[in-house]
């Protein structure tokens, strides 16, 4: 088990390096620089600023310096947020994204798993058809439709919540719902599929033949195997929940990392782009690793092979 984790950890290093190279190359390939703006700035000033930040050096030297700082955990200064480092910005805005992600995850699992279970147990009845059509709609509705819709109904018309912002606890509700319902729809479908698969297995028939009560069959004999697809989905989903929330963050004006990332890309804020990409990549790798470990723990057949 520890060997497995250690090997997975070693594998991440080259992956992160390649991501760093690619991001660096692509951000530099985009026309313009961090200091080009609509307002004309005198070329002398731009030159001085480039020199100050080391942007006049040849690219390989710049990259080398970047990596050197990176190894010390320093993501560099932001070129657009004066006097603030990328570390500070990520550190300040990531907890917001994380909180949003966690609430959404809670909604997605808390709603998706029971709905999927019910649909599987009562397959081909109304308890299956109605929630599953809802889930299909949830998947088809992109968050940039769902978000404004929720804001319109519950913010403007009914007036229960603020339309945007991230100040009071109530402000968490609409954005978390927007993201959570979307992922919950996936979770519901995966749960249903996984449970149906397991419930048709021979060993479920064995359990029935033993006189195991129906709810114990679902809970004790089927659930572990039935939830494996959900667990496998959790890794990418978690990463997507935390990193991919920039649409929702933009809709609801939430000061999360996603918005900073999008703005940084538009502004050619090189260090900020590099920093967020590497941060997200690490996050994704860690999440997937956790999910792999979780799967091994759930499935005894894997446990003894690794």
């Amino acid at each position: 088990m520890f060997r497995f984790i250690f090997i997975r950890f070693l594998q991440t290093i080259p992956v992160l390096f390649i991501i760093a190279v690619l991001t660096f190359a692509m951000s530099r390939a985009a026309p313009g620089g961090p200091f080009s703006q609509e307002r004309r700035v005198s070329p002398v000033i731009i030159e001085r600023m480039n020199e100050y930040y080391g942007l006049a050096d040849p690219l390989p030297v710049q990259f080398g310096n970047y990596i050197k700082n990176l190894l010390r955990g320093d993501l560099g200064p932001s070129y657009r947020h004066e006097g603030r480092t990328v570390n500070e910005i990520v550190g300040g805005s990531f907890p917001v994204s994380l909180e949003l992600g966690m609430w959404s995850l809670l909604i997605a699992l808390g709603l998706g798993i029971p709905v999927g279970l019910l649909a599987a147990v009562y397959r081909n009845t109304l308890l299956d058809y109605v929630p599953m059509s809802g889930a299909m709609m949830g998947i088809c509705l992109p968050t940039f439709v769902m978000g404004p819709l929720l804001a319109l109904v519950f913010g403007l018309w009914i007036g229960w919540f603020n339309v945007s912002g991230w100040h009071t606890p109530a402000d968490r509700v609409l954005p978390s719902l927007t993201l959570g319902l979307y992922f919950g729809a996936y979770v519901a479908r995966l749960t249903r599929g996984g449970m149906l698969e397991v419930l048709s297995q021979d060993y479920i028939r064995t359990a029935r033949a033993k006189g195991v009560p129906e709810f114990m069959i679902v809970y004790k004999h089927a659930l572990k195997g039935g939830l494996l697809p959900v667990v496998a989905f959790l890794g990418p989903a978690l990463a997507a929940l935390i990193s991919g929330s920039f649409v929702v963050e933009t809709i609801f004006q939430i000061p999360g990392l996603g918005r900073h990332f999008v703005n940084a890309a538009f502004n050619r804020d090189y260090t900020m782009v590099m920093g967020t990409v590497l941060f997200y990549a690490t996050l994704l790798i860690v999440m997937n690793m956790i999910v792999d470990i979780l799967q091994v723990l759930l499935n005894p057949r894997l446990k003894y092979e690794s």
Binding site: D202, R205, T206, K210, G225, N299
Partner: peptide
């Protein structure tokens, strides 16, 4: 009334 099934490889629950 108890039962024994044909395929012992799939008739026991692999997760328990």
């Amino acid at each position: 009334i108890a039962m024994v099934f044909q395929d012992p490889m799939t008739s026991l629950n692999p997760y328990l």
